[in-house]
Every structure is written in C-alpha cells, then in structure tokens.
Simulated assay, not measured.
Amino acid sequence: MTGVAEHSSPSPPPAAPRPSPGSLILTFYGAYGRGFSSEGTVPVATLIRLLGAVGVDPPSVRSAVSRLKRRGLLTAERPGSKSAGYAPSPAARQLLDDGDRRIYARPRPDGNWLLAVFSVPESERQRRHVLRSRLARLGFGNAAPGIWIAPSHLEEETRHTLARLELTPYVDLFRGSHAGFEPTAEAVARWWDLDAIAAQHRAFLAAHEPVLRTWSRRRRVPPEAAYRDYLPALDAWRRLPYADPGLPASLLPDDWPGERSAKVFFALHGKLRDAGAEFARAA
C-alpha cells in the first residue's frame, strides 16, 4: 500500500448492440428497397444476397422475413412468373416515410415545448398503454402522470401519428415555454434519462467513428464496401433521433455527445449512401 488513492480509468463506452436481421431488413427497405420497383418489391434471393453482405445468413433472413410478415410489415408478392418477393405493407411504408423525416433531419429547437395531456377511460386501458408507448417512441419525456413533453418541432409528426392511430380523442396538445420554479435544465434531466441517451450516442460513436476515419483516408468509394459500412451505420443511427428528440443544446450537459454522433452519421451518409445504392441495384 502506498497510501496514495488509486484512480480507476474511465469506463469504456458500451458496445453497440448487434443489429437483428429483422432490423437490418427494415433499414434496407428504408434506405434502398423502396426504389426497387413502384411497390418496393425485392425478390427473396436478392434480399438474401444483400443481407448476406452485412453478415446475415440465409436462414436468419428467411426467419426474419416470416416474423415481419406476421407483424404486418412485409407482404409477399409474385410479380408475373418471377420468384416470390417482398414489399413493405402500407403500414410499413408509412412508418418508413415518417422515419425519413426524423432520421435525416437536423432539428433546430426554438426553446418552446409541446405538451400532450391525455386521459383514457379505465375501460380502454389498452389504448392508454398504446398512447404512452407511442409518445415515448416519438421522443416525449414524462413530466407527470398523463402529461408528456417534447420540443415543439415534433408537433406535426405527433399530430400525424396520433391521428393515424386514432388516438386524438384522448389527447390535448399545448405549446408554450417552461415557467416552472426549477431551472429548465434541471427539469429536462427529470423528464428524460439523459445518461441513457448519452450512452446510446457514445455506443454509436464507438462503433462508427473509426469507420468514418477509415473512409476519410480513401479517395475511391467502392460500392460494395460502401454498402457494407453504410447499412449498419444507418441501422444504428435510426433509433437515436427518437431517443434524443433534439433538445436545446443550452439545456444539455457540456460534454453532450449528440452533435458529434450526428456529424459522424451525416458524414457517412454523404460519403457512402449513393455508392451503396449502386451495389444494391446490381445485386
């Protein structure tokens, strides 16, 4: 014993979870699959080749497709005499279109807030569960029982989503500023689990910032290599704009990693997306 306090080294960022085959399939349709035809039908053999390029074996692709069919997200198509293919269902296409607006946006919060205040009769408790889970998935924080809050720029998407799910009779929406008795930054730390959101950003950075550094040293962008790196990055990124709804930077910790992770994703998107599309079209 030296009598000198020992300092442990900082904990490494958590490892990004391995993407599931079903998640990668939905990410593929969001990025590339909708462009395969007017219906977005992709032959199953093509799906197997393209998911194989990012490490998913054929049995896992088939199992994931079956699960997505049961969930009503993919529909089987047989164009003419060709082999079976799969296209996003109308519900899935709506989800993908909504995702485009969130995933590729760079929010500019104005400091105002959107409040969702709801009351659901006990006889319809299942709708209460759906409403809570949907608001959470949209990025709302929970301010109090039956009161959820989000940055005001989420209003249009919130209205659209609640109307699509036929939940508007139970909800009132309000816009305004925070005039409470505690500093707004402290309130934000109650409404959202900032540590958990920051951990997601850091996991994304740990997995994909080294990828960007590698590409920044390359002049050529081979289509297959671009596809292999872009699809997993998009799959990891697409959850973050929902977990982190674009809170004002002035209300976040000084070491907030969100802006850095956004820069990494959009740099990868700009460099790899179109080249990856060449590989997908040629599969």
Rank of each mutant, 00 (worst) to 15 (best):
D98I: 01
G99S: 07
P109H: 15
N112L: 13
W113F: 08
L114T: 08
L115G: 00
A116I: 03
F118S: 13
S119V: 02
P121K: 00
E124Q: 14
R125Y: 10
Q126E: 11
R128I: 01
R128S: 02
H129P: 00
S133C: 04
L135A: 03
A136K: 10
L138H: 01
L138E: 02
F140V: 14
P145N: 11
G146M: 13
I147Y: 03
I147Q: 13
A150P: 01
A150V: 07
P151L: 15
H153L: 05
E155Y: 13
E155H: 10
R159K: 09
T161F: 05
R164S: 08
L165V: 03
L165A: 11
E166S: 06
L167K: 06
L167A: 02
Y170F: 14
V171P: 10
D172T: 13
D172H: 12
D172K: 12
L173Q: 05
R175F: 06
R175I: 05
G176L: 11
H178Q: 10
A179Q: 14
G180E: 08
F181A: 15
F181M: 14
F181D: 14
P183F: 02
A185C: 00
A185I: 01
E186K: 13
E186H: 09
A187D: 05
A189G: 09
A189D: 13
R190T: 06
W191K: 13
W191M: 13
L194I: 12
L194A: 02
L194W: 09
A196D: 07
A198T: 11
H201R: 00
H201I: 06
F204H: 00
A206I: 03
A206Q: 09
H208I: 09
T214C: 04
